[in-house]
């Protein structure tokens, strides 16, 4: 990982303002950017900036966060045009010139200010049959899954998704067609079709194949580029296309 440059006043940058110029989206679907001056701090994150604005400058600002350490995925926003986790984004990394523009995630309805409605995002996980469905009960022995099997390695590659919506907000195909399931839901489906304990493989492939499913993906790779967990939904979607083709050939789709 690249070493983050920490901002400290010194001879070279002492001419820079000690305040950040921050533009923040205010309103719902219709609204505008409001400007704030926020004191600059060392090791300051974008979430720190938003929190400062709400606590010191404008208590009516709405935003969402919980863990502050990159585990919950609730604080994702658009920072200087790129979808990011704000809690894990240092100001020094994205605002070298002391300017920040913070907006809600794209491709989601805006409830208010920086808070988006994630319902459609998670409804698409359900439409992609994102629920595990096993056949064993608590009375059965543990399933034995070889950690080195091809399926388990494929599932492990995508299993760390925490549903932050960064990939969904970064996907051009989602912005072109609203019914596209999106990279996160398809990544979830990919981990499940590779789970040997799951019993809904054929139904899941039927749910994710089609022009609003994996076949709509153009393999542009924005989701993989921006995923904060370095997951590659693009690779999983390509895998789903391949499995769907095989299933279609054998009459199982």
């Amino acid at each position: 990982m690249a070493k983050l440059k920490q901002w400290r006043p010194n001879k070279r940058n002492s001419h820079m303002s000690t305040n950040l110029k921050v533009k923040v989206w205010r309103g719902g679907e219709q609204g505008s950017f409001a400007s704030y001056d926020v004191p600059r701090q060392g090791s300051q994150t974008v979430l720190d900036v938003v929190t400062y604005i709400q606590r010191h400058l404008d208590p009516s600002l709405s935003y969402r966060f919980a863990c502050r350490v990159g585990m919950c995925g609730s604080c994702a926003m658009t920072v200087n045009g790129v979808a990011r986790w704000t809690c894990r984004t240092h100001v020094a990394k994205v605002a070298a010139d002391g300017r920040l523009e913070i907006a809600p995630l794209s491709n989601l309805l805006v409830i208010k200010d920086l808070t988006t409605d994630m319902s459609e995002f998670f409804d698409k996980w359900a439409r992609a049959k994102g629920q595990f469905n096993g056949k064993q009960t608590r009375h059965d022995d543990f399933a034995r899954v070889d950690p080195n099997s091809r399926e388990r390695i494929a599932a492990n590659a995508g299993i760390e998704c925490i549903g932050c919506g960064v990939c969904y907000a970064s996907c051009d195909v989602v912005s072109w067609r609203a019914d596209y399931l999106g990279p996160a839901a398809l990544n979830r489906a990919w981990t499940l079709v590779n789970d040997v304990r799951d019993t809904q493989r054929a139904e899941r492939l039927r749910a994710v194949a089609g022009d609003a499913g994996c076949h709509a993906c153009h393999t542009q790779g924005s989701c993989s580029e921006h995923c904060p967990k370095q997951i590659e939904p693009t690779a999983g979607i390509a895998g789903l296309k391949y499995l769907a083709a095989k299933a279609a050939i054998w009459g199982e789709l």
Binding site: G210, A212, G213, H215, A244, A247, L253
Partner: peptide
């Protein structure tokens, strides 16, 4: 949405 089978077939024909 056109059928999943149609899209899967179109995909492999385009690949081939």
């Amino acid at each position: 949405m056109t059928s999943a089978v149609t899209q899967a077939r179109l995909w492999y024909w385009q690949r081939i």
